[in-house]
């Protein structure tokens, strides 16, 4: 990890993000804030990767950082009027679960639909890369096409998806990180 290897970083993210998100959601009950916290923890981890000395286990460090961040978020709710209103609603918690869940499911289904509509060649490359986590090189070997072509096709698939998902203001962000799954 301290070598600054981005693959290791992505693997680390994949390993912990879910438990950290659940931990944050249990206390905050607001997906926006939870996303923000996970983002902060990992951004911080990446920035400090060269210098960070963790005396406890990495896991303990991550959950500790997460708790610290959760506390900060709750404190700042007090001063932020926008959140105050939300805070007052919190007792009816169950509603949030459903609403927040829907948010991700809608994104996922819009994405799925767009993927299905991709031209066959592009769809294949996209699925192999994003869902089966194959590297470009592996895809090139499997499909018997040059690596450069895989890159091109992937770029083109993402462009199409982005265009189709314009109504999701942040969808481009999701698509922007295709590279990390190489």
């Amino acid at each position: 990890m301290r070598t600054g290897d981005s693959d290791a970083f992505a693997a680390l993210y994949r390993k912990y993000w879910r438990r950290l998100f659940d931990a944050a959601y249990r206390r905050l009950l607001l997906r926006e804030e939870c996303e923000e916290i996970i983002q902060e923890i990992f951004t911080d981890l990446w920035t400090k990767r060269e210098t960070l000395l963790i005396s406890v286990s990495l896991e303990a460090y991550l959950f500790g950082a997460s708790r610290y961040s959760i506390y900060n978020h709750i404190r700042s709710r007090k001063i932020r009027e926008a959140y105050l209103e939300h805070w007052l609603k919190t007792p009816g918690e169950e509603g949030n679960y459903i609403e927040d869940r829907l948010h991700y499911e809608e994104l996922a289904s819009a994405l799925e639909k767009s993927i299905e509509n991709l031209p066959e060649k592009l769809r294949k490359v996209y699925v192999l890369s994003r869902k089966e986590h194959l590297t470009y090189k592996e895809i090139a070997e499997q499909e018997q096409i040059p690596v450069d072509t895989v890159e091109k096709q992937m770029g083109r698939a993402l462009k199409i998806l982005r265009d189709n998902l314009k109504e999701f203001a942040w969808a481009w962000l999701v698509l922007a990180l295709w590279d990390l799954y190489r």
Partner: peptide, 22 residues
């Protein structure tokens, strides 16, 4: 929370946060 998501929903969330990190 994440247990209530479908596999696709889960991967959308995973991707979204990573994008934010990036």
């Amino acid at each position: 929370f994440t247990e209530s998501l479908s596999a696709d929903g889960l991967s959308a969330l995973e991707g979204k946060i990573f994008a934010r990190i990036e």
